[in-house]
Design a protein around this nucleic acid. Structure first.
Lengths: 405, 405
DNA sequence: GCAGAATAATTTAGACTCTAAATATAGGTC
DNA sequence: GACCTATATTTAGAGTCTAAATTATTCTGC
């Protein structure tokens, strides 16, 4: 659909080596996604010739992406012992950052996504400046690297999630006054300080990647992940691709106001407080709390005790969520909607009600599940994003310690 | 984001010829998108060597995709006269079909998208059976080919739009009882009868392709096209790609009920009638029409005459449209929303009101324009779809009349 | 121990493609 | 007619793949 780019001139010179790029990618993909393989297995998997597979593997070993395994033969086998090659998951590391309003989390993972180290840090000020944020983020990342017994030089890519729209070029959308100045700062500053390749991304988008990778949406290609808590936003994946929209603002759910007449967008936690306080004020009970003391947790706890007013609040929340999911289902037709964010722990109890209402609201209801990734979805998604980037650039990257020219 | 497929084995054998495929694509893309070029120009455009470009061009000529032009030199020029090559737009044709409820339209275009012939046919029965539909569609397509002085054997691809969800594999989504049986019938039957390669697609999706190709959204990568009339649906393009969703149902706008409390989905024309009739019944005028006589056209005409009740209906329509567009803008963040379908002729007068309301409803309002493609959007989009398919498969297609083995 | 079977690695020959550099060609200019 | 210019063609060299032939390693059975 419409040309992508003046094709040739920019895509580097063509030549016999592009063939090698294709074959090397094929082999590397197999190695990355599976255990060590014998050459014969790789021949079967890729459809390439034995001679080619060996040449490619030796190439990959030289470049640091693969290693030859010394095989331990279990039982007696016939024939010449095969050579086996495996992916070098320790060829480098990636970092996943979840940069929140008050704190930041860093994960360090190997090239297969195994988490090697974690750290988190809090911003001292409640409204920290760019410098403060940058320092905390940077030192948290370094701390996670230390916990992983790794070092900044070994980092091949960094994924970073922020609670703001991020466009396709990795810039925080204009008009988002708070982040506007900081975004360029983050990617540029981390590159400056450590030489890192930073991929900035909206947090809900990363949560979606994480759910698709390790969570409730594992392996599905059409998914929406709703992050509900103080904020409300969604990460959308269609046909395996993140949707960002023109300015990176896709996935905002501020149409809530249109859906049931509320004024402006509201996080679910906020709503629970607000509606809970209403109920308390109307002296409908809620465990005798004063309206000012009503927290989201208190409402959920009261509902557990059978408080009818609190249960009424939950019904309203179910309705609200069902409407949001109904709009997503109708407009985007995902296979599954995952509920995540701060609401996740409480969401399980809303699920039956939501599913029931959803069926009435749309002809194409998605499945609905609750995230099981706890607080780590965004950081895990950042890891996934970084891994994807590394996989894409693999053959252009010179791995530290490789003997390649 | 997750592996796509067991890479190698299915992708055909690798070898030096894949390089040729790359270079040939690069040259062919340039030729297709521009006038005839001299070899030197192609060298600049593609970054390839002169020797390569000539070899590739001669290859393309042999395969029927390009032709060598005899140059007419305008003024005196220095140097050896260059060879020039051009795309052979007449190497074959594509067909675009708009299969509606009551009639069908067929366009025939050359490989550059120039429309060569048109035809349309009506179904005799109001609820025609599969056989009747198939016969009319087939003969309409053949009539359009005749009008284009072409023939069924020259058809390289057929795009076909239907008013039903179509999933990625080209099948009408299950549960859509009416089309369910017919869809497979259409693609299979046209292949059977004429050997055509048929690409079934949702009509709103095709309208979106058309707007992006020739219409108000020319060249934009993030667009939504709302088809409003008796029915209501949208075609969504994000990052240059159509969104289909899990079952092809993406773009449905039946969430309208959620947005302002209406029951079930309603086409705009229906609403105009309904609300107009309400207004008439409340004896608020509407040019003295009896409620039963109120048509959408009558409402718009009355508004033109300054009838306040009719204007009230238009305000309500503006509000409804603005809400729909607001949801699209917020959730998908397109750059532009195009209003098309039966509403298009009347929509221009709603535009100012819609734009004004939209700004109040979302933080990321899209631009809003009215389609200028008149009734042809779907059929044109079908042509575009077919052309894209041909472009993608170009080097695997044996063009009729080529001397390639 | 040793021939033979089984499996895999390595080598060799052949084909195709690209680039780069050298050579040839077709016009115009002086 | 000699020269200049822009282009075309040829030639040499390198990289890559496949396919087929050759060599290597191990186990089995006697």
């Amino acid at each position: 659909m419409v040309k992508t780019a003046r094709s040739g001139a920019e895509n580097g010179p063509v030549g016999p080596h592009v063939v090698r790029r294709v074959t090397a990618s094929a082999v590397l993909d197999e190695l990355r996604s599976g255990g060590p393989f014998t050459v014969s297995e790789l021949v079967d998997l890729t459809g390439l010739t034995r001679a080619t597979v060996i040449a490619v593997c030796e190439d990959l070993v030289r470049r640091g992406w693969a290693e030859e395994h010394v095989l331990e033969r279990l039982g007696p086998q016939r024939g010449r012992p095969p050579r086996t090659f495996g992916f070098r998951a320790d060829g480098g590391v990636v970092v996943g950052l979840d940069i929140g309003a008050h704190k930041t989390t860093a994960l360090v993972a190997d090239l297969r996504g195994e988490i090697l180290g974690t750290a988190s840090g809090a911003f001292r000020d409640s409204e920290p400046g760019a410098r403060e944020r940058l320092d905390v983020v940077s030192s948290t990342a370094v701390a996670a690297l230390r916990a992983a017994s790794s070092a900044p030089e070994r980092v091949l890519a960094v994924g970073a999630g922020v609670a703001a729209p991020v466009d396709r070029s990795g810039h925080v959308a204009e008009g988002s006054d708070f982040w506007e100045m900081f975004d360029v700062g983050l990617a540029a500053a981390l590159r400056e300080r450590h030489g890192w390749h930073v991929l900035l991304e909206n947090d809900a988008n990363l949560a979606a990647l994480a759910e698709q990778w390790l969570g409730a949406a594992r392996g599905l290609d059409d998914v929406a992940v709703v992050l509900a808590g103080e904020r409300l936003g969604a990460g959308l994946i269609e046909s395996g691709r993140l949707l960002r929209g023109r300015n990176g603002a896709a996935g905002e759910l501020a149409f809530l106001g249109l859906v049931d007449g509320a004024v402006g967008p509201h996080g679910i936690a906020q709503l629970a407080r607000e509606w809970g306080a209403e109920a308390a004020a109307q002296s409908r009970g809620l465990a005798g709390l004063a309206p000012a003391d009503v927290t989201a947790e208190a409402v959920f706890a009261a509902a557990d005790d059978g408080d009818p007013a609190a249960e009424g609040v939950l019904r309203r929340l179910e309705g609200r969520m069902a409407r949001v999911i109904a709009v997503l289902s109708t407009l985007l037709n995902p296979e599954l909607v995952v509920l995540g964010g701060a609401i996740a722990p409480a969401a399980a109890r809303l699920l039956p009600g939501i599913r029931l209402e959803l069926k009435e609201l749309t002809e194409t209801p998605a499945e609905v599940e609750v995230s099981a990734l706890e607080g780590e979805a965004v950081a895990l998604g950042a890891v996934r994003r970084a891994l994807d980037d590394v996989a894409e650039r693999a053959l252009e990257i010179d791995l530290p310690g490789s003997q390649a020219g």
